[in-house]
Amino acid sequence: MATIETTGLTKSFGDVHAVEDLDLTVEEGEIFGFLGPNGAGKSTTINLLLDFIRPTSGNIEVLGIDAQERPAAVRRRVGVLPEGFGFDDPLLGREYLEWAIETKEADDDPDELIDLVGLTGDADRLAADYSTGMQQRLAFAMALAGDPDLLILDEPSTGLDPNGIQNMREIVREQAERGTTVFFSSHHLAEVEAVCDRVGVMNEGELVAVDTIEGLRESAGGPATIQLECATPPTELGVADLDVVTDVAVDERTLSVTCTGASAKVDVVTHVAERAEIVDILSESVSLEALFNDLTDGGRDGDDADSEQAATEVAQ
């Protein structure tokens, strides 16, 4: 049974389709990254999953429970880190957390959760006086209360310092190892790349890709580059005549080849190896960022010249 399953899910605000005909399946135990630029419909989808807003059409099942009919039953088994929450009441961090544990009818030790998210020593201060990052940590601790079967994290790294992000990633991984499904929305590519098993990419209310990161890379269009350092200057090897090669450059003993896709690199290496001695191979994989830009047409900034450059950038 899938942990999250939406079929034909549509949410319109007036004429604007925030989410359109979304079929999303998140399997049990996986860390699913939900990626997209601002306004792609990520938060709207999460709000729908939690019944904060009601769909225009379509169905949502979370943990096999209809999200509209029995929202409280869903919430009993889900830990949520919502986006744009508020800690406005004059309550201590510890009190918020205790409330979370009590509401979940759980028996967690508040101090343990406080230590886990790195708020040791700050629990007895007013949560309203916390910094954004500390509030995020507290919210994360509250989400972890009651050992949920599904964690829904909406832009979890907002306001966190690098240590906080690192810590959160570790906790997410630990949770996943214990069988918790994690649904993770972000526009932070690195974050998703670092923790997620599978990724879904949203753009303008539609799911434009769902795959593993490897799979996405694999299927990523666009040119791939490979550099081969050879023992002797690699001239007249006939590399340019290969169908998959679009560009060749030779600089002393280094051969730079641009080919149509990642898999074409193998052909290039095989071809060269048969004709010359290869000393070193430097292969540059297509980054998720380039992919992301590809899939989302550069997001909101798609018309800028920058995104053109970003789309062709490659990771180390």
Binding site: R75, V80, E83
Partner: peptide, 21 residues
């Protein structure tokens, strides 16, 4: 209204509470 404006309502409803609660 205050909870709706501050986003506190999301917290309340992220836990096993219904809108009726």
């Amino acid at each position: 209204a205050g909870e709706r404006e501050s986003g506190g309502i999301k917290f309340l409803l992220s836990f096993p509470n219904t809108r009726r609660d």
